[in-house]
Design a protein around this nucleic acid. Sequence first.
DNA 1: CTGAAAGCGCTTACAG
DNA 2: CTGAAAGCGCTTACAG
Lengths: 338, 338
Amino acid sequence: MKATIYDVAREAGVSIATVSKVINAKGKISAERRNQIFAIMQRLQYQPSAIATALTSKQTYTLGLLIPDIANPFFAEVARAVEDRGHQFGYSVIICSTDNKDERVERYMNVLKQKRVDGIIIGTGFDNQTMLEDMSSSLPIVVIGREVSSLQVATVVADDYMGGCLAAEHLLTLGHKQIAVLTESLLISSSRERLRGFRETLGRAGLTLLESNIVSCRNGLEDGKARMIELFRGEERPSALFCFNDLLAVGALQAAKESSIEVPSALSIVSFDNTLLASVTSPSLTSIAQPMDQLGESAVDLLLGQITHGHDAKQRILLRTELIVRQSTAAVQSTSTL
Amino acid sequence: MKATIYDVAREAGVSIATVSKVINAKGKISAERRNQIFAIMQRLQYQPSAIATALTSKQTYTLGLLIPDIANPFFAEVARAVEDRGHQFGYSVIICSTDNKDERVERYMNVLKQKRVDGIIIGTGFDNQTMLEDMSSSLPIVVIGREVSSLQVATVVADDYMGGCLAAEHLLTLGHKQIAVLTESLLISSSRERLRGFRETLGRAGLTLLESNIVSCRNGLEDGKARMIELFRGEERPSALFCFNDLLAVGALQAAKESSIEVPSALSIVSFDNTLLASVTSPSLTSIAQPMDQLGESAVDLLLGQITHGHDAKQRILLRTELIVRQSTAAVQSTSTL
DNA sequence: CTGAAAGCGCTTACAG
DNA sequence: CTGAAAGCGCTTACAG
């Protein structure tokens, strides 16, 4: 069977307390004893049980990561950053893809509670606000990617408002006036902020964003594509489009292609997120970059701050968004609408 | 503090053994007692400690997933399938992105051993064969995506050889004769199999794959792109290209664009994996699909077979690959080389 | 149908 | 510098 601390203690002719001390580099142990014990651990292939350690020390060195879907490139990149930052401090991460379904969120929450994870990063949306309150009262939590107005929680978000402004400025600079927006559910705070920044910037330039040009869709690529095909059939086709994530932009790109509308000459598209997808399409997508790595890293840092230093001042970190110009945007053609 | 089994036992006026039995639906407990105890658990918000349970029952209900990079769409999709299948049976999964570096593999392996995970799915490559042997002798393991000749381990792989054949057949049908291959490291068994299937199929049609047309590259998109730009500069430019993964194909697509070679009219590209990327590029990629969901699911099933039923006949599951025709391939133009 | 007791593999005061 | 002992929160024979 697997060697235990008793086995190495016996071999070394010392107490388990002593072995425990050398493992954890605590107390004062003579150098020779220490080395002797290390040698024995090696020989027995001893791996201290993190389970037993957790039971006594109340730390599992495990984090939970709740996101809508790990197969979504945006969250996969964030997850990678979370993993790396956590690993750096000795933490493992359990992934929980919720599909934004309350039922899945709840099940995962219970699993994470039972496994006694040291903290949870929440990047998923859910309707049940009570759930969040419950969580946050029972263990360290940080929310990423959206605001939680109702509650004091640590959060790290990209500057969505600024992102919306940047997108608008870019399109304005290119001379666009007839502009549409393809958004995810406006129930999500980040979408609302992007829209607000976008609309206000247009407003400052004397343009109004028509309600009929705000298209909301829920199911990603396919749905976005269908909605855009409809839009392109309309009378007053816009010369530019602001999509709230890369997947939606891909849908729009495909819709444009099927409608024989050339991008960017006849239609400019600005996307959001700047995942791998944005650089892979053709034309590649001008996109508002969210710093996904920093999002993950900062989330871990905030969490560890709560876990190890007991920080309870709930911080809020706002990360800068940035315009990445690629090939999907161009100056408006005077002939493009007609 | 958090309620324990003692708290609910005290409240219910029974022993902890009884509470344990109702939690685990073991033994015979009168229905009223059971309900009474459930009510108390609810009231105390009692969540049994999976840590304590694991210490006594020797099961953590946690799986390790070792992959090169969770941010890589292929592995992200596999991970999602692993997560879902595991969750279905009450297992959580810890992600471990190794970047194929032995040092990272080793560190993660130790973490997983210490955390006493019930099993590990290995989708990462590494040079140190001893490591695998060590692992496999100490806990249940299944390897995905590649063959391990040196060792008896459970494996689940896609039919790479068949995939290579399918790619070749498709290009032959379209009349291509001058064909190149863009491959990952040929140290990976799956790459070798793809190449073998491809080459043999060409051979049966009387064509030989020139060594100079087998381009091997290591760093994904950018490297692939650079290597293709070189290739396209050569005298005898191929009319078709078989790329061993979607990322490489994207690189090739970009290289073609920069070299003003039109795809598919002047160059056909067949890709491998059929991740999200294949459907998102323009033109979209004809690709050999690996069943990523099944890969993940079967891996979990094999693992649970070992864990719960003690299966030690190391199974090998071979999954079918499939040709998905999109827009990146077309019949050869007689004028394309010249 | 129910409970007393040992044990899982550690850590942590406390005493020496 | 080192060790005895209690305790973390469960499960599992075993006895009744």
